[in-house]
Deep mutational scan, measured.
Amino acid sequence: VSEWTEYKTADGKTYYYNNRTWESTWEKPQ
């Protein structure tokens, strides 16, 4: 699942961004 990158927002929430599909999600990808 290497295309997903984990980021943190300014208020400390974690989200995930897909470099291949430009998708972002709050849930941890499978």
Rank of each mutant, 00 (worst) to 15 (best):
V1Q: 15
V1W: 14
V1K: 07
V1N: 11
V1H: 14
V1I: 09
V1L: 12
V1P: 15
S2Y: 14
S2R: 06
S2E: 14
S2W: 00
S2P: 11
E3L: 08
E3Q: 09
W4I: 05
W4N: 02
W4M: 05
W4Y: 06
W4K: 01
W4L: 04
T5G: 05
T5I: 08
T5C: 13
T5D: 09
T5S: 12
T5H: 11
T5L: 12
T5Y: 10
E6G: 02
E6I: 06
E6H: 03
E6M: 05
E6Y: 05
Y7A: 10
Y7Q: 08
Y7H: 06
K8M: 13
K8E: 04
K8A: 10
K8I: 04
T9H: 02
T9D: 13
T9Y: 07
T9S: 09
A10W: 05
A10V: 10
A10T: 03
A10Y: 02
D11H: 07
G12V: 00
G12I: 00
G12T: 01
G12N: 02
G12F: 00
K13Y: 14
T14C: 12
T14K: 10
T14N: 03
T14W: 04
T14R: 01
Y15D: 07
Y15M: 11
Y15W: 13
Y15N: 02
Y15T: 00
Y16L: 02
Y16P: 00
Y16G: 00
Y16Q: 00
Y17W: 08
Y17P: 01
Y17T: 11
Y17I: 15
Y17N: 04
N18Q: 03
N18S: 04
N18P: 08
N19L: 00
N19K: 10
N19G: 09
N19M: 10
R20G: 15
R20H: 11
R20D: 15
R20V: 10
T21Y: 07
T21E: 07
T21D: 07
T21H: 02
T21N: 08
T21I: 05
W22I: 02
E23S: 05
E23A: 07
E23G: 04
E23K: 01
E23Y: 05
S24N: 06
T25N: 08
T25W: 07
T25I: 05
T25D: 01
W26M: 13
W26Q: 06
W26T: 14
W26L: 10
E27H: 11
E27L: 09
E27Y: 09
E27M: 04
E27N: 09
K28A: 13
K28Y: 05
K28H: 11
P29G: 04
P29I: 06
P29S: 05
P29D: 10
P29Q: 09
Q30I: 13
Q30N: 11
Q30K: 07
Q30D: 13
Q30W: 12
Q30S: 09
Q30F: 03
